[in-house]
Amino acid sequence: MSASSLPIIQAHGLTKDYGKLRVVDRISFAIDAGECCGVLGPNGAGKTTTMKMLIGATPPTAGELRVLGHTVPRDARAMRARIGVVAQSDNLDPDFTVEENLRVYARYFGLSAAEVRSRIPELLELASLQDKAGAKINQLSGGMKRRLSIARALLNRPELLILDEPTTGLDPQIRQAIWQLLRQLRRDGLTIVLTTHYMDEAERLCGRIILMDGGHILADASPQALIRDRIESHVVEVHGAGGERWLATAPIGPEVRRERAGESWFFYGRNLESLVRSLDEYDDLHYSYRSSNLEDVFLKLTGRDLRDG
């Protein structure tokens, strides 16, 4: 077997305890070259801890982990020379200009001066920051900082890019721009692993979803397969004051699965036309009838309880 056909990441029985609390519980997965894998889950699912173990920022309590063939955390430093990491909150150096940030960071990888000179303009162009080379970090918008963080993670031409919630806290238009950048990197063959709690982000970017909750992997498949296999094809969402009255006479067959979240009812099934027709007589009810999406899968598998923290 050639080295290139080995998985980029191999995790087996990966476990992390903090004191008596088990945050990640014996998870196993493998990620191949060229994949873009989204790690999804509610707060406290163990996503960020898993990412920290991947880059060697925290040692696993048990289990085996190999990234790019390096045993982690033992060979984490050699492994990190070959990956790029984008943290959740930008940790750019505010004292420095955009270009200085890249130049200082390149030194940590031991890149030669000649290499850095040719690499910086390339990366500034990739991140659409050509005009900002001399700007201070606090003169940049949130989206620019994020793009610079991604550019910085690419200095060493990584074989794997790891991003922790790449668009959290950004405006919708800026999120689009970040997605475009990540899609371009993916087209160029870079393997990407990202955490997110935005379903649309996962659905648009990732060919594969690892859904985590309570330290376990609940599902591991493509978004399409998850929607096809793990949830009914359609959903009717109903909310409004007349709900109880309608519900008493509504034609809800035994094959229809129902859930309630606050003021809303959700009805999942294959054939919901009669249900939708019965709603027409109730002017005080609002409803939507649509095909199921990743968010429905997520809520089905992780439950609808609100989690803080």
Partner: peptide, 12 residues
């Protein structure tokens, strides 16, 4: 500034 975190994501 989390400068050390950034450095620890590099091979240091």
């Amino acid at each position: 500034l989390k400068t050390w975190d950034a450095i620890l994501a590099a091979p240091l």
